[in-house]
Amino acid sequence: MASYKKDYIFYGIVILFAIFFLAATTQIHSANNTATLGPKFWPMMILIMMLVFAFMGIIKTFITHKRIVNGNMTWTEESEEPERRLFNIPLSLISMSSIMLYALGIFFIGFILSTIIFLFVLIQLLGGKKKLLLLILSIVITGVCVLLFSNVLSIPLPRGIGIFRELSFLFY
């Protein structure tokens, strides 16, 4: 994608963001009428400035783009190297989704199980070989975390819900 198109998309998103929050700001009702400056004052100021800068950005991109088309200037286009893929899915998406699933995992099945699975699977996806060694490594790392935080420092790590919650009480 050409760089100027990306700029248009970026400023477009900024404008949408600002308009959405401006609309939300008008819905705010001060919970306390003794204040001199209400709760709307500050965000209004920020959002309006944001809109102004975004429009300035669009104009700037437009002008630079025109100049390039007219041949007065050249873009320094960086070539993007194609991303590494796994099962035909870009790796960035794989790591993003595995983090998301991991975050869901600690909520539902608790810290211990989800961490072991997360480490075991992701290390392999990123290129780790030797399955047995990795399994042991995942369990050891998880064990150290649980021991350090929940047992030594008595900061309970997430337990999960239902049966997983009950199970976690066996460890901490």
Partner: peptide, 10 residues
């Protein structure tokens, strides 16, 4: 929560 009025924002 807004620190000055206690209003909930966004």
């Amino acid at each position: 929560m807004d620190a000055l009025t206690g209003t909930l924002r966004y």
